[in-house]
Design a protein around this nucleic acid. Structure first.
Lengths: 146, 146
DNA sequence: TTAATTTCGGACAAATTTGTCCTTTATTAT
DNA sequence: ATAATAAAGGACAAATTTGTCCGAAATTAA
């Protein structure tokens, strides 16, 4: 559904939002360890999230990553997906046709329209805050509990 | 959503089903031209579809590809997806976690369950016959009408 | 039987995605 | 100022997906 990079991006953002703040930043190593992802690759992805103002970062000792309180409530799952994977999943044709729209639809156009609308609604209707709730309550996980 | 190979597979199968029969087979060149796909790559994909008994083929002059009448009514979109992309889209975790289920769900587990169920229902509820209908009526297309 | 045709199948190549390594830059504390 | 720390950024490497090429196998028609 999403690229590996996008999966890491969502996992990383959620972990940072749930476990860091402006006065308690966390490092790339802690993040990668917490979400079970390759350190250097995750660093690259975080750079993109920082550029897209989804995650904040500061350099130097006591530096690290965090998510602004405001951002936690304003950022939706779809914002992360769009920042990393672009808008292909929101507007591309299910069969990969360059020009597929209502006037010249592919055979699965209407079927996919429904699914895509449901997906868009979900992605744009779910905030970081919504997802952090389950994490804080211990109802959801970013890693297997062993 | 699907791999490029899977997109070609669906487009190719639909074109063959709509334009060929056991007494009027079509060649790989005709298929690739009709669905605007790379010939050799499409040939590889068709081999897989033949092995999965979704498409039939015969060699030699007047040989080519076709879909059995029975198969047209029995084959669902999901069968093609599974033959080419495997079952990842049906069972994988939305965030790529190896172990994500009801007892240890990822933060988006429930949201994705809904989307995935809708997708599965659509893929397993849509036959080749259903999709050929729009093609024959000229309501849907596998290529832009220029 | 021979030549032509068409899929099959393996090896190879290009492009993209995923992932690593190392140097630079910024910041902090001593 | 200096040293230590942590992200930023660029170059490179591995893996996967996408795509090509060509000979082999099968079938048909002359």
């Amino acid at each position: 559904m999403f690229s590996k990079a996008c999966e890491y991006a969502i996992r990383a953002t959620l972990h940072i939002a749930a476990h860091a703040s402006i006065e308690n930043k966390i490092s790339i190593k802690e993040i990668a360890s917490a979400i079970d992802s390759p350190v250097a690759f995750t660093a690259k992805i975080l750079q993109q999230l920082v550029k897209n103002n989804i995650v904040e970062s500061t350099k130097g000792p006591s530096g690290g990553f965090f998510v602004l309180e405001e951002t936690i409530h304003k950022t939706h799952l779809g914002d992360i997906v769009e920042a990393i994977d672009g808008d292909a999943i929101f507007r591309g044709c299910g069969l990969g046709l360059a020009s597929c729209d209502a006037t010249c639809p592919c055979p699965v156009h209407n079927q996919f329209l429904t699914i895509r609308n449901d997906l868009s609604t979900m992605l744009q209707g779910t905030t970081l805050a919504d997802l952090m709730d389950g994490l804080h309550k211990g109802e959801t996980f970013l890693k297997r509990v062993s």
